[in-house]
């Protein structure tokens, strides 16, 4: 059985460099390099594995500003079949609800085109477990609901797809252990870093990608209601951003010639002042 997959790819700022401007209290975005959300590359690898053993197609899908096509160009190099960027002013400012609305409309369209081309629709939707900018992990499950897909999040190991039964088995990571789940296709999975890292792309794939197009779809290309897109379609509002309350830099206990035992004594004196006393059975 051939499996058609969609992999959701988000271009994110390198979050280690994102800061709040202390004067204006707004986010400094300028000059921050963009990267592909690292978990999405794990998701892409999982999709590539499925295609390796079952055939079918992989479409990379991203919603973002025009320059997000860079991320899609890059994933094209892994030898996927198609890359679609949803880019339109109307999509801007979307929270996860509006994002899943827009992405799901695009996935429906992709499925429609696959069917029109004589194939089945979309069997699997892959997402990263979360994006490193928003950190929500809400988009994968949201897509599952909107598209009526089985929902399996935090997948730490994706097992074989069983063609006859149209099911897939996956290990899902929980805080207290791992559970083996069996899900019926079509399914939406979100992938953690415990899965395999992305492969080293083959040169022939890179060569093909160098000339392959990234398709850009606007709102007009999708069957969507304008009011449910972007900022308009987003129930949440950011009312304020601010720098995390910086922990005050404390006291330095070491000095140029201060011997370690004196430092240690000073530390435990200080701790005692804070009420942290060494010595048990006093109370």
């Amino acid at each position: 059985m051939r499996i058609n997959s969609v992999v959701c790819i988000k271009q994110v700022p390198d979050t280690t460099q994102v800061r709040i401007d202390p004067d204006s209290g707004s986010l400094i975005r300028q000059g921050i390099p963009s990267v592909i959300n690292p978990y999405d590359l794990y998701a892409l690898e999982a999709a590539l594995k499925v295609r390796d053993s079952h055939g079918g197609t992989i479409t990379a899908l991203s919603m973002g500003p025009p320059q997000a096509d860079e991320a899609l160009r890059k994933v094209l190099g892994y030898g996927i079949d198609r890359a679609v960027l949803l880019s339109d002013r109307a999509f801007a400012g979307a929270d996860t609800l509006a994002t899943t609305y827009t992405l799901s409309a695009a996935i429906r369209k992709i499925a429609g085109e696959l069917i029109a081309a004589g194939g089945a629709g979309v069997d699997m939707v892959f997402c990263g477990k979360q994006s490193i900018d928003g950190d929500t992990g809400q988009v994968g499950p949201g897509l599952a609901r909107r598209l009526d897909l089985s929902q399996v999040t935090y997948v730490c190991s994706l097992l074989e797809v069983a063609a006859e039964t149209r099911t897939v088995r996956a290990w899902r990571q929980r805080e207290d252990g791992r559970e083996l789940l069996e899900a019926r296709l079509p399914v939406a999975v979100t992938i953690t870093e415990a899965c395999n890292p992305i492969r080293y792309a083959a040169l022939p794939d890179l060569l093909r990608a160098a000339k392959a197009p990234v398709e850009v779809w606007s709102a007009a290309d999708l069957e969507v209601e304008p009011d449910r897109l972007g900022l308009k379609g987003s129930p949440t509002r950011v009312s304020k951003v601010f720098a995390p309350p910086a922990r005050e830099r404390g006291e330095t206990l070491s000095g140029p010639d201060r011997p370690p035992n004196e430092i240690a004594a000073a530390l435990f004196d200080k701790l005692a002042e804070r009420g942290l006393t060494i010595g048990g059975s006093r109370g």
């Binding site: 096509d69 094209l76 160098a210 990234v214 398709e215 850009v216 779809w217 606007s218 290309d221």
Partner: peptide, 11 residues
């Protein structure tokens, strides 16, 4: 491609 724009992938 349903009237959508096509961006060359750097080509």
């Amino acid at each position: 491609m349903n009237g959508s724009q096509v961006h060359p992938a750097g080509g």
